[in-house]
Design a protein around this nucleic acid. Structure first.
Lengths: 241, 241
DNA sequence: AGGATCACAAGAGCAGTGCTCTATCTGGTG
DNA sequence: CACCAGATAGAGCACTGCTCTTGTGATCCT
């Protein structure tokens, strides 16, 4: 049986000093784990090193996290939430009917956040650690930014801004059915294809820049400008200009 | 001083039994390393395990590769070349003036290759192993597919197919200068921006599919169709339809 | 209040890793 | 044939994730 997992949610209530201490310990571990991640990356994250830094022996750490993977999972949720917080705040600060601003907020904030902590970005949008299957705990925080994009698409459709729809093969309509259902059916197939491509392009751009694939293609000191240009063009793709 | 590095190129000439045996040994190591990579991924690649499988003790392997990173580098070059071979062959089989076919060949072959060996794809287009700086040996094989895309863009421009150029901020023109220089200046700034976006979209799409980010957005049994739709739309972006 | 219980921490230990150093062996070359 | 560079083997170091056992101290119940 897992010693953690359930512990996260309960301890917010005042259940006793024991539970509170436990929760604080967990947070302390996570904090140093975060800094280790930022410095050495996911593959360099050592359970023992984290334990040392937090001032305990490695075996004691297993009271708080079942395994290294469990710790990594917590960090992943952490990262998703961190990105979610940043993007939601930026997007939320925009006028609701300024759809272009909302898109740009999402895009720019995502990139800024990724550049600030590349390892954290790599943890969630890089190649998954082989053999590591994302637990179901991660899916909810993972959808926070996609939910914003979905809502944006709904508003684009409602505002009648969607570009003239192309005719689509039935197979493609079926392909995007899950995504459309996610938006309550308020987004047409063509716009959904565009939206998914916008999503792909955004994270493709960030990944390429972060993982060094842009080297020798785009001037290093002009990456900002190029990204801006990209996001503007993607905005046009989904009818925002 | 490195015991390998230089050994790769020389041993093709008949320099003696010793050198030939050495080269064969290197190849044998690489072969089992390849299979280990395909099975366990990059982080799971163990030098000792490879040595065991190839029938020698781990320390002996260091005669052929200076370190685990050196072995990984060889595998990276391997992967780039494997992808380069596949894409070049597919693209080369197209009519030279059928630009759309050439694009689709590049795109489809890339995806097929990636799906066939995800770990190998992740090795070159996934998040880089932290602390690992790609040696200069890898840049040449890495450019093989981008070279094809660059040539394609040149032909698009020459054929006058490039979409009507938008006005570009000077900073963006500067940003794409390296890429344009790479094409001998035969590609205009606007088309180059489009080309780079096509490039990121392609690899963004493949990465998203491979790394599980498409889950719950695109129907699992319709990923092929969706990818086809994407490549067709990207083709339009660079004037191919 | 005393005793049972349980969460927690510590340590030893196992199997594995990358890598180094030394000793041994062997086979192509002068 | 003798020689010695090049190849191999093995021991060893410091590290990893993880388990098991033991000790300790706070909590809770009778």
């Amino acid at each position: 049986m897992s010693t953690n997992g359930s512990a996260t949610g309960e301890t917010t209530r005042a259940e006793g000093v024991r539970a509170r201490a436990r929760h604080q310990m967990r947070e302390a571990i996570l904090e140093t784990a975060r800094s280790h991640l930022a410095e050495h990356g996911a593959v360099g994250l050592s359970l023992r090193a984290v334990a040392r830094d937090v001032g305990m022996v490695s075996s004691a750490l297993y009271r708080y996290f079942d395994s290294r993977d469990a710790l990594l999972t917590a960090l992943i949720i952490d990262a998703y939430d961190s990105l979610g917080d940043a993007v939601e705040e930026a997007e939320g600060a925009c006028e609701r009917d300024d759809l272009l601003a909302r898109w740009l907020a999402i895009a720019v904030t995502t990139r800024t956040w990724a550049l600030a902590d590349p390892h954290q970005y790599a943890l969630v949008y890089g190649s998954p650690v082989p053999g590591y299957a994302a637990p179901t705990d991660t899916v909810t925080p993972a959808t926070r930014v996609t939910r914003l994009l979905a809502a944006l698409l709904v508003d684009v459709e409602a505002a009648g801004l969607a570009p003239e729809a192309q005719s689509l093969p039935p197979a493609v309509v079926e392909a995007v059915a899950p995504a459309r259902e996610y938006t309550g059916g308020h987004v047409g197939p063509d716009l959904m294809v565009r939206g998914l491509m916008a999503w792909t392009s955004l994270f493709g751009a960030v990944s390429f820049e972060l993982f060094g694939q842009r080297h020798n293609a785009v001037a290093d000191d002009r990456l900002d400008d190029f990204f801006t240009e990209e996001t503007n063009r993607i905005a046009r793709l989904i009818g925002l200009t």
